[in-house]
Simulated assay, not measured.
Amino acid sequence: MSLQHKNNYVISADIGGTHITAAVIDLEKKMIIEGTRTRVNVDSQGTATEILESWSAALIQAYEKSGSPVQRVGLAMPGPFDYQNGISLIKDLHKYEAIYGLNIKLYLSEVLGIEAADILFRNDAEAFLQGEVVAGAGTGFRKVIGITLGTGFGSALSVDGIVTDLSLGSRPHQDSIADDYFSTRWFLRRYHEITGLSATGVSGLILTSKHSAVVRSIFDEFTVNLSLFLKDIFLNEKPDTLVIGGNIAKASGMFLDELGNRLTSHFKGLKIKLAVLGEDAALMGAAASFDNGLRLDILPSADDILRRDLFIRY
């Protein structure tokens, strides 16, 4: 995959807890090249080799589908992560612990034959919100908070189109951190605590919702917890819009109306919107790291990230 010249194309990828989605983006036209979308399942609790080979396979497949030379890569990556140097700092989050401390940038550079300087990483929630602000649910609003509800709890803030990571998932909540309460594993754990039964995902719980008062009560509890948590955040940030994405947002019929009622009772005029671009939002946001001229010198260092994460957790 050795390439000789720069062009407008970027291989972009959104790395989730169970899969990676990749595609080739045309930065000049601000669009995904049709036919290049590639999805590969990933065992986030697998070995480092299994994880990295799944990621590189998706990137290579997207590239091969494009039919055009590409020599830049942008990745939307969950944190904590040293985005400047491309080193994973994820641990104690039940995912990707096998790649802790590994330099993903150098690995991908060697495998793909792309200069390390042409591989950029961006927080996944930040990339998601960037995409939604540019071409989705957040378009036209000055101050937007975006949250992603899935295998983790992602969050970002957009002010006049400038998007930054909020890292709300690491903030204290009840007896742990927010990530433990506003993610898929909380639903599965709570369902097991109440019923003694196991479920494979939130979608499985939804299928039983019409027949299960327990599932409805779990969503009610989730809604109360999330509204109280966001209330404290909104008192400081005062956003005009909240954009909600992630796989749990697909179950919005179970919580969105009540969440809206609770938040708008405190914040008059607040707009609450579901994300509209799906995975395309993070793909566009990751590629935009090049388009926006993302300055690596102002990104936090690994020490900064670890200090912040430890401070927030403890």
Score class of each variant (00 low, 15 high):
residue 3 L to M: 11
residue 7 N to H: 01
residue 11 I to A: 11
residue 12 S to M: 06
residue 15 I to C: 04
residue 15 I to Q: 03
residue 16 G to A: 04
residue 16 G to F: 07
residue 18 T to A: 15
residue 21 T to L: 13
residue 22 A to P: 05
residue 23 A to K: 04
residue 32 I to F: 03
residue 32 I to N: 02
residue 38 T to V: 12
residue 38 T to A: 02
residue 39 R to L: 13
residue 42 V to T: 13
residue 49 T to V: 13
residue 50 E to P: 01
residue 51 I to P: 03
residue 58 A to S: 14
residue 61 Q to W: 00
residue 62 A to E: 03
residue 71 Q to C: 10
residue 77 M to R: 05
residue 79 G to C: 11
residue 81 F to G: 09
residue 82 D to I: 09
residue 83 Y to A: 13
residue 85 N to M: 08
residue 85 N to C: 06
residue 86 G to D: 08
residue 86 G to W: 06
residue 86 G to C: 08
residue 87 I to S: 03
residue 87 I to P: 02
residue 87 I to C: 06
residue 98 A to L: 06
residue 98 A to E: 09
residue 100 Y to W: 13
residue 100 Y to Q: 08
residue 102 L to D: 00
residue 103 N to E: 01
residue 107 Y to E: 01
residue 108 L to Q: 03
residue 108 L to N: 04
residue 108 L to T: 02
residue 111 V to E: 12
residue 111 V to Y: 02
residue 117 A to N: 14
residue 119 I to R: 05
residue 125 A to H: 06
residue 125 A to K: 07
residue 127 A to Y: 09
residue 136 G to H: 05
residue 138 G to D: 07
residue 144 V to R: 10
residue 144 V to Y: 08
residue 147 I to E: 08
residue 148 T to I: 07
residue 149 L to W: 02
residue 152 G to W: 06
residue 154 G to A: 06
residue 157 L to K: 10
residue 157 L to R: 11
residue 163 V to E: 08
residue 166 L to H: 06
residue 169 G to S: 06
residue 172 P to A: 10
residue 175 D to M: 08
residue 175 D to Q: 14
residue 178 A to Q: 07
residue 180 D to M: 11
residue 184 T to S: 12
residue 190 R to P: 01
residue 191 Y to K: 10
residue 193 E to R: 09
residue 198 S to K: 15
residue 202 V to R: 09
residue 204 G to I: 12
residue 207 L to T: 13
residue 207 L to S: 15
residue 207 L to G: 14
residue 212 S to I: 10
residue 214 V to Y: 02
residue 218 I to K: 04
residue 222 F to Q: 02
residue 223 T to S: 09
residue 229 F to V: 11
residue 230 L to K: 09
residue 230 L to R: 08
residue 230 L to E: 10
residue 234 F to G: 04
residue 241 T to F: 05
residue 244 I to K: 03
residue 246 G to A: 01
residue 249 A to V: 00
residue 250 K to Y: 01
residue 252 S to G: 00
residue 253 G to S: 12
residue 255 F to W: 10
residue 256 L to Y: 03
residue 257 D to M: 01
residue 257 D to S: 09
residue 267 F to C: 09
residue 268 K to L: 10
residue 274 L to E: 07
residue 277 L to D: 05
residue 281 A to Y: 11
residue 282 A to S: 14
residue 285 G to P: 10
residue 288 A to G: 07
residue 288 A to W: 12
residue 291 D to R: 13
residue 293 G to Y: 09
residue 296 L to W: 08
residue 296 L to G: 12
residue 305 I to D: 05
residue 306 L to T: 15
residue 309 D to Q: 14
residue 312 I to T: 07
